[in-house]
């Protein structure tokens, strides 16, 4: 199942829509894993779209079978990278001489969308003008509020900070600037009393 309906939450927690083709001369699509499916759906809405589009795709395991189909959409430019980090220089290069009117579409995991959103807003596009669609894993990027380290792909609550080793609980409070949710020490008032980790949304 690649679509997941996140339960309603607090105002800082991002919500995601479904991608719609918008007017504009240039289109940038950034996806990982099952996010490719959202691009396939988007392309089906608008026959002329892909010829104006630059697709940046990170298959990361679960997307392996989707690469061929994405390539088959014949985007104006297509790139496939081994990781998000590897794609960042390219994303920055593309944004650096993009023009107003560029449409940005982000799809896949929350971590990918959040980080790519950050690049696009830093380049001058307001976040509300960037479209997002969640597909695939519900793992979260978490910031440890204590040591500031980011732990990727967190799927349980609580979890152990990959940097300082504190046991952190998973909040829905989200920072667009950090592209991360907040993790806070769970046993500060009762050291050592750490509940067993439970899978998110289970």
């Amino acid at each position: 199942m690649s679509k997941f309906q996140f339960p309603e939450s607090i105002a800082s927690r991002p919500t995601y829509g479904s991608l719609k083709s918008r007017p504009g001369k240039a289109h940038l699509m950034i996806a990982d894993a099952e996010g490719a499916e959202a691009i396939l759906d988007l392309a089906a809405q608008d026959a002329g779209l892909m010829a104006k589009s630059h697709v940046i795709y990170i298959p990361s395991g679960s997307g392996a079978g989707l690469s061929e189909r994405l390539r088959g959409l014949k985007p104006a430019q297509y790139y496939e990278g081994p990781s998000y980090a590897a794609a960042v220089p390219r994303i920055r290069r593309v944004l650096s001489d993009a023009h107003m009117g560029l449409q940005v579409y982000l799809c896949g995991t929350e971590g990918l969308m959040g980080q790519a959103m950050n690049e696009a807003t830093a380049a001058g596009i307001p976040h509300s003008a960037i479209q997002t669609e969640h597909r695939g894993s519900i793992a979260r990027r978490m910031q440890c509020v204590h040591c500031k380290g980011i732990t990727e792909n967190v799927t349980t609550d609580p979890f152990v900070c990959a940097h300082c080793g504190l046991n952190l609980f998973v909040r829905d409070h989200y920072s667009r600037r950090l592209a991360a949710f907040q993790g806070v020490c769970i046993d500060a008032e009762d050291p050592g009393n750490v509940p067993n980790p439970v899978e998110l949304y289970k």
Binding site: H99, M100, G101, G124
Partner: peptide, 9 residues
């Protein structure tokens, strides 16, 4: 005029 303005205009 609108066409070709850099991002962040």
């Amino acid at each position: 005029l609108l066409d070709g303005q850099p991002l962040g205009t």
